[in-house]
Simulated scan of single mutants.
Amino acid sequence: MSEPAMTARERRDRAALPAPEKQLIIKNLFVGHDRFSEATEQVRRFHMPVDGGVNDTGSLFALAGESRAGKSYVLKRYAAGFPVERGEEGLVRRVVYVDLPVACNERKFVERIADALNVGRASKMNTEAVFGNILLGLQEQRTELLLLDEVQEAFQSERPAALRACQGYLRKITDLGTLNVLVAGLMETYALMEADAQLEGRGLLPHHIVLPYTWENKEDRAGFRLLCDHIDTRLPFVEKSGLGSQWCAARLHWVSDGLIGRLKAFVFRAACYALNEGAPKVEPGHLATAWDLVKPVGTTFNPFREDLSGAPPRRPASKTAGATR
């Protein structure tokens, strides 16, 4: 997360930008924090296991973790590093990102992959025919890595028929022997895949768990404070807001559960209040107002107005708290 310090002049120039530009700066903040770097490196190593070598084939990889931990962001940015190219025999899609839809059944699973490959999904074609186009498209477009995001929408034990069908499609894609497949989803998704001997056997199911930052762990606490400070540095205000201070970071951790997506969404709300007031920085009052807007119904405690010693339990223990990376 190292970056050059912003000079006072650079900070003033950024703070003087038009409102739309400042709003987009806050909305689109990116910080290469350690969770992002670790997950990206794991994806890269799964794709290209040897430096200077070739892409691996025939294996499945699981990227798992809680909602808003940053899995989708990792996959989208990785895929963006491999734009579509025009080869001698047509388009080349080395890395393909697919966002599976809500309540994904067998047909939707196939259609969404077909859309990403642009191989067509004619309404009169049956599902197997569309899937045949996918297998052909993956080979013709020389795809090396297929990234399937939100796989928990298809892999649900409550819908066994869809689960079996989608697992079968994964096996057939992997068995092409020309690419690897990475699936991203919740921890329950990884457990379902691990329990499937046929899927687990395709590469032994290497995996990476994207963990939230915990406040109790010294290293995590330091990492979270550093992340808050880097976000603070990039905000379009004349002054820094002290987001990385012990006082503020502890409260930001409490409201975000240590999850990157929740942290960024919360800071965005507070920073918008500060912009609207013409404030030189994000003040505790802006953070307090932002929490009033998003706090669960029935919650009265506000960590930005009250001492954290009186805070109620924020959430049950994380299911990934004991997981290893």
Rank of each mutant, 00 (worst) to 15 (best):
A5S: 08
F46E: 06
D196W: 04
D229N: 08
K240C: 07
K124G: 11
I209M: 14
L192E: 03
T40F: 13
A79G: 10
F36V: 04
S318N: 09
K27D: 05
A323C: 13
A222W: 00
L252S: 03
V98K: 09
L179D: 10
D13T: 07
T189H: 15
A290P: 06
L308Y: 00
L259A: 05
P312T: 01
R11V: 01
L24G: 06
G203R: 12
S241F: 03
L24T: 04
G223D: 01
R77Q: 11
D229F: 02
C228Y: 04
D13Y: 13
A8Q: 08
R325V: 13
L63I: 03
L211E: 06
L199C: 12
F46H: 14
L75Y: 00
G258H: 02
N217P: 00
L226M: 07
R234G: 00
S72A: 01
D34H: 02
A154N: 02
Q42A: 15
R325G: 07
P316M: 02
G90F: 07
E111Y: 15
V92D: 05
F301A: 06
W254Q: 11
F109R: 06
G203A: 07
R142G: 00
G90V: 09
E3F: 10
L192Q: 03
Q198D: 12
E38R: 14
K281S: 11
V50L: 08
T7F: 01
E150P: 11
A274C: 06
Y73I: 10
I26R: 11
L287P: 06
L192M: 04
F304T: 03
L176I: 06
E153P: 07
Y169M: 04
A191G: 10
R305G: 00
F46M: 00
H208N: 08
D149T: 07
D51L: 12
P20G: 05
G32M: 08
K281F: 14
F155Q: 00
A270K: 11
T40Y: 15
S72C: 00
Q156I: 02
T7R: 10
L146T: 05
H33G: 02
T57I: 14
E10D: 08
G132F: 06
A197N: 14
S309A: 13
R121W: 07
D99I: 08
D292C: 05
D99C: 08
